[in-house]
Design a protein around this nucleic acid. Sequence first.
DNA 1: AGTATGTGTAAGTATTTGCTTACGCAAATT
DNA 2: AATTTGCGTAAGCAAATACTTACACATACT
Lengths: 118, 118
Amino acid sequence: MAYEARRDVFQAIADPTRREIIGLVVKEPQNLNALAGNFNMSRPAISQHVKILTECGLIIIKQKGRERYCEAKLDALNEVSAWIEQYKQFWEQKLDALETYLEKIQQQPKTKKNAGRK
Amino acid sequence: MAYEARRDVFQAIADPTRREIIGLVVKEPQNLNALAGNFNMSRPAISQHVKILTECGLIIIKQKGRERYCEAKLDALNEVSAWIEQYKQFWEQKLDALETYLEKIQQQPKTKKNAGRK
DNA sequence: AGTATGTGTAAGTATTTGCTTACGCAAATT
DNA sequence: AATTTGCGTAAGCAAATACTTACACATACT
């Protein structure tokens, strides 16, 4: 990452790792090391993702001593939500299988991607 | 663009040009030249964006003679919508809590902050 | 038939992205 | 005081991304 000018929410959630970070932090705020423990990549990599997420306001950091706790603050998702909502009627007119689809989504089990890391 | 393996919807809508293409095509299906006329970039650039959008199913092409009409088919946005919906309560809860708090300390009846939300 | 139009695609390029390792520094622990 | 822990950030790199121009090739028009 260049870690510069990007604080666009659409861009932020385009990366699967960042979406997963959001999912983890929503469930439980945690510090950066704990967060990184869930992934198959280095701690700095996660740190950089978190930086992007904070820059666009999806995560806030609460410093506690030397630890930095990441909490979700998803208001910025409103921008995406609003963009989608404006088209929702358009596509729902044409789609009768929406509920089926949503059920399918919800039933997807969580995969354990990164078992043994430290 | 590399125009290869990417057909991820989150990635597709991360680009502002592609979001604009979707907006235009929803309003009115149009061929590629007409579409490109709306942008400050070359026709091939738009063609490549459209390719990505078709690959992830957000646009379908209807060939008419030598022209190719682009139509929106936004069902794939469900994936994004579903992802967002699962967090909606999370962030709206916090908004509601804030409003409750504000109303309490201000002793004011009925603010309209919530208008337009679901 | 010859030309114009609508379009896909290849090749080239600059920039951005997503990662790594290396290092530095402050807060906690010993 | 010395070490460990938690973390940010720089530098480097491969790959992806977003463009461009050049070209090929139908379909339509004359």
